[in-house]
């Protein structure tokens, strides 16, 4: 059966025979636009440097869903995710990536970062300035589901961290604060993209919490007239990590190209493309050049939660704090 199907497959699919190397980049939803710009730039660079052609394939979806596909055997050469836990999961469950991946590249293997911002309707009719405005009665907050979306998890942690940093902030107070935020959520989309559609296309809610670079995508797709971006007093530093999938590149013999592909993300060109897509670059020169599009925001890292892996276990796993919060909201 499988042989027959494989034969059919071979007959039908035109394999791009001209390409010497084909890399599959398995990525999350919001990175589509960035890699659309980055891939041709890298292909040009690679061709010039190694006299070798490289073809790049993309797969996009929710970060965890994509990681699961890799675990189940999707032959990604590189993964570019929005949370380190998704890559850790590939290390643990699928063993396709070797442990210590975050040490193989600079900046904990995250070539750029983003942060959670608040997007409000034009003119900010509800006067939303900071995280505490999200708990006000009558304010509807659009957030993707923290169980299924990295975007939602960062929002949850950002709100938690904000409450903790207020005078007299305790874990109990933070938990109450996050509960109050989620009480105001009318729709929980599975991913960040769904949440944006709900907010922009369906016109539901007063504020959308999402990544800073996603705000720019909204402006490009929906026009700049319909909304305003509000930077909260503090936010969470969302590092967007990348890794080579060891098992796949060793099998396909694409390690060199895959490593080059990721390394080039740190090059001035790669960093510039990132900045153009509103991802905060690491390169100081590029950061300085684009400084005016990245307002200074006080940031805290996931290290405040003992790392993403611990946060996942405490907050987002089944029966964790988020589940308890959701249950307590539903009971009301």
């Amino acid at each position: 059966m499988s042989r027959l199907l494989a034969a059919v497959l071979a007959a039908f699919i035109a394999v791009p025979a001209f390409a010497d190397v084909t890399l599959l980049n398995v990525s999350y939803d919001v990175m589509r636009d960035f890699y659309k710009d980055y891939n041709p730039a890298f292909a040009k660079y690679y061709d010039a440097k190694f006299k070798d052609k490289v073809t790049l394939q993309q797969s996009h979806g929710g970060s965890s869903k994509q990681a699961r596909s890799v675990i189940d055997g999707l032959e990604a050469d590189v993964v570019t995710m929005n949370q380190s836990t998704d890559i850790d999961a590939i290390v643990e469950k699928g063993k396709q990536i070797n442990a210590g991946w975050e040490k193989r590249l600079p900046n904990e293997a995250a070539p750029f970062s983003s942060l959670q911002v608040l997007i409000v309707r034009k003119g900010n009719p509800k006067g939303i300035k900071d995280w505490n405005d999200l708990t006000k009665p009558g304010v509807q907050v659009i957030v993707p589901n923290p169980k299924t979306s990295g975007n939602g998890r960062y929002t949850y942690l950002a709100a938690w961290g904000y409450a903790l940093k207020q005078a007299g902030g305790t874990d109990a107070k933070a938990r109450q604060f996050v509960t109050d935020v989620f009480k105001n959520v009318p729709v929980l989309d599975a991913g960040g993209r769904g949440a944006t559609t709900t907010f922009m296309q369906r016109q539901i809610g007063d504020v959308l919490v999402t990544f800073e670079n996603e705000a720019e995508m909204i402006a490009r797709e929906f026009g700049r007239g319909g909304f305003e971006v509000v930077y909260p007093s503090v936010s969470i530093d969302a590092d967007l990590p990348v890794a080579v999938v060891d098992k796949v590149v060793d099998k396909k013999g694409t390690r060199k190209a895959a490593e080059e592909y990721l390394k080039y993300l740190w090059s001035p060109e790669g960093q510039e493309i990132a900045a153009q897509n509103y991802l905060r670059p690491r390169d100081p020169a590029v950061a300085a050049k684009y400084a005016k599009q990245f307002p200074n925001v006080k940031l805290f890292g996931v290290s405040d939660f003992g790392g993403l892996q611990k946060a996942q276990k405490v907050h987002f796993d089944d029966g964790g704090v988020y589940d308890q919060i959701a249950a307590s909201i539903a009971k009301k």
């Binding site: 929710g62 965890s64 869903k65 990681a67 699961r68 675990i71 999961a89 469950k93 589901n145 169980k147 299924t148 959520v185 009318p186 729709v187 929980l188 989309d189 599975a190 987002f316 796993d317 089944d318 589940d323 959701a326 249950a327 909201i329 539903a330």
Partner: peptide
């Protein structure tokens, strides 16, 4: 897709899968 209110069972399967 609100927890306890409008989550269907097939979504729970997907949700479990996404938590590996």
């Amino acid at each position: 897709n609100m927890p306890y209110v409008s989550e269907i069972t097939p979504l729970m399967i997907i949700s479990k899968l996404e938590q590996y």
